[in-house]
Design a protein around this nucleic acid. Sequence first.
DNA 1: GACGAGGTTTACGTTAACGTAAAGTGCTTG
DNA 2: CAAGCACTTTACGTTAACGTAAACCTCGTC
Lengths: 147, 147
Amino acid sequence: MSRPSSQAQEANPDALPKQHRTYSIGELARMFEVTPRTIRFYEQEGLLAPTRQGQKRIYREKDRVRLKLTLRGKRLGFSLAEIREVVEMYDAMPDGNARQLKRLLEILADKRANLERQLEDIRLMKLEIDDVDQRAREVLRQLGDDA
Amino acid sequence: MSRPSSQAQEANPDALPKQHRTYSIGELARMFEVTPRTIRFYEQEGLLAPTRQGQKRIYREKDRVRLKLTLRGKRLGFSLAEIREVVEMYDAMPDGNARQLKRLLEILADKRANLERQLEDIRLMKLEIDDVDQRAREVLRQLGDDA
DNA sequence: GACGAGGTTTACGTTAACGTAAAGTGCTTG
DNA sequence: CAAGCACTTTACGTTAACGTAAACCTCGTC
């Protein structure tokens, strides 16, 4: 248990400013339950751009957030290409020209519409799941009351 | 505008009992904006089971509903395998044994949890879209007031 | 009876999103 | 210094969900 002033980080993640923390690829992989391969692949696809220390990738808060958003997008069925489209424009925003910005607004409106449809889909699917559930329980009841 | 008593169906879909209507593969394809290939593929994957008239596929209401549900599931990111799992159990329900029914209830609970997570994901993603949208509009404003 | 519009089967091609394996680099620890 | 661990690159493999093409049937119609 000797740790005078070494840089052992992973033990207590909340112990430091959190804003200037860095992560290794393995750390991130464990945090989000994906493989390092997946993270490297996302980089190759232009969704992440970690810096290097020698040849090792160094991830900052910004990268972690991006990964989080990417995975969220994936869970909602967006393709990596779609996600990248937004991410790239977001990055280019500060000095983006008006055309690009308007295009970005279009994309955002599009995504929003998409989300609305998903909300409706979820609502409908819940109703049907309820229905199937009901029927299943009824059949179970008639098979004997030890449900 | 001659239509004495012929069987011209597609023109006015709501004109007949609707319950005993049948559909060709092309009709369904147009209704849902998919290709016939997709519909055949779903059959091959055990998601549809149309009857035949000669060698042509005949789809009934039941099949149409299934296709609708399948596509909805897809929009929510479920794989065809997952969708089939529910569909098959639903079909086997009337005479399904207790183990199967309980398994079905498990799957349903699982799907429900999945939907809940998606709801949360959508909520969060909407917030971020709003955020990006805001920023984009601000930058646009500063570039000149002709947004 | 040629033909065009729909349908059919068979089969190979394609894309996205990684998995997996091989071979090498660099630290630190017994 | 050998071993082990975490990381790296390169490259080929895999799966799901269709697309696409070819070659055939079967109507109603001109």
